[in-house]
Design a protein around this nucleic acid. Structure first.
Length: 422
RNA sequence: GGAGAGGUGGCUGAGUGGUCGAAAGCGGCGCCCUGCUAAGGCGUUAUACCCCUCGCGGGGUAUCGAGGGUUCGAAUCCCUCCCUCUCCGCCA
């Protein structure tokens, strides 16, 4: 969420930013400012009453000790009345505060100056391309490839669990594992600390990174134990430092985490979800950064480069998009998407999304650092996929498939698995 | 899962109804002393929010695992939940 004081001082900017993200209800901004004003007004009254009551309670203590019962009783009666007044106002106080906070959660992050204003994916800017996209020619989509020892077994996945839960067997399973190892070892070279987080999180964590309340339908839930199954490692890894005050020289913190991810993907069917294009369970190596506010712009660029370099070393053609205001999501200030070329399908597949959340998540999670001034300030959080496995797998299979049959193994993976081909 | 013990500031640890936001020690920071170092002396050292102030700063409220309750008054009493430790059981 945004800082209420920032909203009060930059009302027009916040409204404009909402409009740019395609949200028309800018009246929310006025409502939140008004709710805050009402809350502040009442807070002053209630705290004054509490102060009065505290003072009297202290006097009562003294009088009781001296044995002056009657005088004490008089003050007790007065305090009972004050207490009634406080209780009356406290209901409103909570209501105003809840209303304010509720509204605050509905106001999206302000987009960075450099983000193009636009309404949908057509307004995203291609900021970088690498490699020559291969023509389809004789190439097959990955779900038709099976002339090697192992397979992507969608049918048995459907039988055992359901659509979107494939088996990877034999050489394909090994290839997947090699990719994960490669991603993690690159992350280590780039200064990220590897983390193995829990795959389930509690409600506070789900709220911290913003999956709750707005994206509840995205997650699988275990109601009996009140746990949420992670849709991305971002959730447990960023929450690792929830409610902490970090020292300035701990920053920047950089973490990598390999986890499976589970997403309900309610309502998506059809050709877009063929093969590995969209799954309910998929593997991903996630990169998370917790940084000093002054550094977050630079850290986003280096995060993006960290992700891009993986595709370059795999020699997979890709392009990088700067997402426009309308396509970037609620909590981000700036976001890049990396899309790899799929020659078998002749289309671009999103394999990474690198975002700067500025202080938006940090404020929800109360992750702060102590500055040189001795005060606490919100950190900035960033994350990016490095990378999501299934579509990279699809691109590798399609890009490295051989006309005579089989699939070559990318050079960079050769130290992570046996052989030259699948 | 069963039985018991416990959760207090950066850390250790006192505190069982009033002047306790909390003793003491350690650690941190500042100053003093001192050829250097070590030792020592004095002071200072939680977080959030509200109000006043240009600022320095001042006033107030809340917080002793979390939430609720009793009371004029709760770290302290009661209830619920969470977590940690010990023993037993079960188990990869």
């Amino acid at each position: 969420m945004l800082d209420i004081n920032f909203i009060k001082e930059h009302t027009d900017q916040v409204k404009q930013s909402m409009t740019n993200k395609g949200m028309n209800d800018t009246g929310l901004v006025d409502k939140v400012v008004e709710a805050d004003r009402q809350w502040r007004e009442l807070v002053q009254k209630v705290e004054k009453l509490r102060s009065e009551s505290n003072q009297k309670a202290k006097k009562i203590g003294g009088l009781m000790k001296e044995g002056k019962r009657e005088q004490a009783q008089k003050l007790i009666d007065e305090n009972t009345k004050i207490k009634e007044q406080i209780q009356e106002k406290e209901t409103d106080l909570d209501q105003f505060k809840n209303e304010r906070d509720q509204l605050l959660l509905q106001i999206p992050n302000v987009a960075d100056q450099s983000v193009p204003v636009g309404s949908d994916e057509n307004d995203n800017e291609v900021v970088h391309t690498w490699g020559e996209p291969l023509k389809k020619e004789w190439r097959k989509p990955h779900w038709e490839l099976n002339d090697f020892d192992g397979k992507l077994d969608f049918d048995r996945g459907s039988k055992v669990t359901g659509a979107g839960f494939p088996f990877y067997t034999g050489r394909v399973a090994q290839l997947q594992r090699a990719l994960i190892s490669y991603f993690l070892s690159k992350a280590r070279e780039n200064g990220y600390t590897e983390i193995q987080p829990p795959f389930f999180v509690n409600e506070d964590s789900a709220r911290g990174t913003g999956q709750l309340p707005d994206k509840e339908d995205m997650m699988y839930v275990i109601p009996r134990d009140e746990l949420y199954i992670i849709p991305t490692a971002e959730v447990p890894v960023t929450n690792y430092h929830r409610d902490e005050i970090l020292s300035k020289d701990q920053l920047s913190l950089k973490y990598s985490a390999y986890t499976p991810c589970w997403r309900r993907e309610a309502g998506s069917h059809g050709t877009e979800v063929r093969g590995l294009n969209r799954l309910h369970q998929f593997d991903k190596v996630e990169l998370v950064k917790i940084v000093h506010p002054d550094r977050s712009d630079d850290e986003l660029e280096s995060l993006r480069v960290d992700a891009e370099s993986l595709l370059e070393e795999l020699e997979l053609p890709y392009r990088t998009l700067l997402m426009c205001t309308g396509d970037m999501g609620f909590t981000q200030a700036k976001k890049y998407d990396l899309e790899v070329w799929s020659p078998g399908q002749e289309k671009w597949l999103e394999v990474s999304s690198c975002s700067n959340f500025r202080s938006y998540q940090a404020r929800r999670m109360q992750i702060r650092y102590r500055g040189d001034d001795g005060d606490t300030h919100m950190v900035h959080t960033l994350n990016g996929s490095g990378l999501a496995l299934p579509r990279v797998m699809a691109a590798v299979l399609e890009h490295y498939q051989l006309e005579e049959g089989g699939v070559a193994i990318p050079g960079v993976l050769k130290s992570f698995m046996r052989g030259d081909k699948l």
